[in-house]
Design a binder for these strands. Structure first.
Lengths: 357, 357
DNA sequence: TTGTAAGCGTTATCAC
DNA sequence: GTGATAACGCTTACAA
């Protein structure tokens, strides 16, 4: 442990000696420049309030001494941390990585540093991360999805900091959302396939437990199918990890179902879909001739696999940018609270879907 | 701006009233529990030092009041922030995202929060991020690559915090590295192709400016070719953005070179290589029959494209884990400074490389 | 075992 | 325009 023994309590009455902690303090800079601490602080934070010559002397002193302001001291005195937080499920994924890097860019440009937390799809871990961020004094927070324990939202309310839910969009939520309607998006995908004449469907999906987006996606499929009076039961929905391996394995499973095999397979995301396409290749199943396959996300690779994947494009970068801007506008007092923004999704029809036999 | 007007300087001599700032302080909890502030602090930080009944009373009071400790106050008093930092070029990339999420997991487990900075391959931006992190009191820092301004390293030395360079490995560096030898890795790739009988090479690469790893990779290729007395000049090396588009465009360019066209194309990473493979598909160039293609990184998709990509596997997750562990061992006083660790890379020979005609 | 109070490095109020 | 100094919320040396 790096514990520094504290100096004797009774200090000399004179100005404290330098380097008590090894690190240069604003006070040291002030002494070096022959001004008061207030002036040093002003020279950096409100430069227009100090005479030019004094300011230059201060800046020079700080430069010479390699002074780095201490953010903790500053935070304590000003009750401003200039830190924002983002909680995402995982970084192992283009989707959230794009969101985060866009947020980072926006915040960074405005002088904010971003704290990142990954929950690994565990709501409890997400809750812990949020508490840690609040303790660190984040001034705003973005969090993916709505599926979080109520205590999390309660803590956020109590902390009185602006926050937005990203990726999901729920018009009835008591908080701001920046995202899109997962249910509607999957209805669009499903209808695209129905319009192509498909009547026998299957789905390969990531688990919907602890994941409101996935649950909404499945609901979207079911609703569209019900509307078209198409059967779809438990057996038609394979659930497992969102990996290419699971996609491949599941697709092989579906193709082995003989007469009852689907002519259209809706995958929960592009990764699963690409696994399915790969399996089709090795099984010599014609896509889309024998079976159509759809993905979701429009990952970079979606247009590079063969056949190119029909999928739904979401502008995750834009989600990140919008979310960060909403939060900043509240922090900077330009608005009272973040405003929900619904993004549109765009079906990218490519070569993995075609007419039913 | 959220500026709170400060209360009058002359306070009553009695214990300060609660809620001066709206947020609950440790002092409020102490009052509520009927103990001193010291006891509250101890109840949380050194629980074994307070009587069980007192501790429970304190914990209950804190719980009831929804107290969240203020990290700035704690940092100031203890000169410990429990923050670590990581600087990476970009998150738009499986490679660094994996590194970061592994680090995050390790740090989080040990009670540290991770500050993330993306430099977008701009050394100046990287420098700014490092300074911001030092101001925030990071206790350790990981930074990708060696290509940074000397002031950055100087600042790191001055701050006296442990840091490691990740991804790159330089045995002669005056600091610890956790990474691998990019030069050697590309020599292995090049030799693999030479062994297959290739004599006419080309390369499609990301820019090596401001990027020591890329420069080392190119040098590796050149060294291996020189050893085998194989010609390779400027014209054989196409440089551009690390995108599939550039990979595709460049491959098409190379294939249009008539008699002097290469039989082996070494790409700077998998993304470029996958673009090249896609172009080969649309140009009806047989891979590897007519031309072999190699990548680097072994992205998830590398084994899903057709033909499957021969590439080099790097365990980026492991890099992140090792780097974080090195840093933690210094922070926790288990070692005096981080120790360099060289990772091995593994050539994954798949279907995109084959014998020369 | 518990309490008292100084001190961490800033900012911001007030006085000059 | 500049300086003196309380206050920010916590930890910790020391006293009790």
């Amino acid at each position: 442990m790096v514990k520094r023994s504290r100096p004797a309590l009774s200090q000399p009455e004179t100005r404290r000696a330098r380097s008590t902690s090894g690190r240069i303090r604003l006070e040291d800079v002030a002494a070096h420049a022959g001004v008061s601490t207030a002036t040093v602080s002003r020279a950096f934070n409100e430069p227009e309030k100090v005479n030019e010559d004094v300011r230059e002397r201060v800046l020079k002193a700080a430069e010479e001494m390699n002074w780095i302001p201490n953010a903790a001291g500053r935070a304590l005195a000003s009750s401003r941390t200039h830190i924002a937080g983002a909680i995402i499920p995982t970084l192992d994924n283009e989707v959230f990585a794009k969101q985060v890097s866009a947020m980072q860019a926006v915040f960074s440009e405005r002088g904010y540093t971003l704290f990142l937390g990954c929950s690994n799809y565990d709501p409890e871990e997400g809750h812990r991360q949020v508490m840690a961020m609040l303790a660190r004094g984040v001034e705003a927070l973005a969090i993916v999805g709505e599926n979080h324990p109520p205590e999390l939202f309660r803590a956020l309310k109590l902390a009185k900091i602006p926050f937005v839910v990203t990726y999901s969009f729920n018009p009835n939520a008591p908080y701001a959302c920046v995202g899109f309607d997962h249910n509607a998006a999957f209805q669009v995908i499903t209808r695209h396939l129905i319009d192509l004449g498909h009547r026998k469907f299957a789905a390969i999906f990531q688990p919907s437990q602890d994941n409101d987006r996935v649950a909404a996606r499945l609901a979207g499929i079911r609703e569209a199918l019900v509307d078209a009076s198409i059967m779809f039961d438990e057996r038609d929905c394979l659930v497992g990890p969102p990996t290419m391996e699971f996609g491949a394995k599941s697709f092989a499973d579906l193709m082995s179902r003989g007469a009852s095999k689907p002519t259209a397979v809706i995958c929960g995301n592009d990764t699963i879909a690409i696994g399915a396409i790969a399996a089709a290749g090795s099984l010599n199943v014609d896509v889309p001739g024998t079976c159509s396959i759809t993905g979701f996300d429009d990952l970079m690779i979606a247009s590079q696999v063969s056949p190119q994947l029909t999928t739904m494009r979401i502008d995750n970068q834009h989600i990140g940018t919008l979310a960060a801007r909403q939060l900043l506008s509240v922090i900077d007092g330009e608005s009272l609270q973040p405003i929900s923004e619904e993004l549109t999704t765009e079906l990218r029809i490519r070569d993995s879907t075609g007419p039913a036999l």
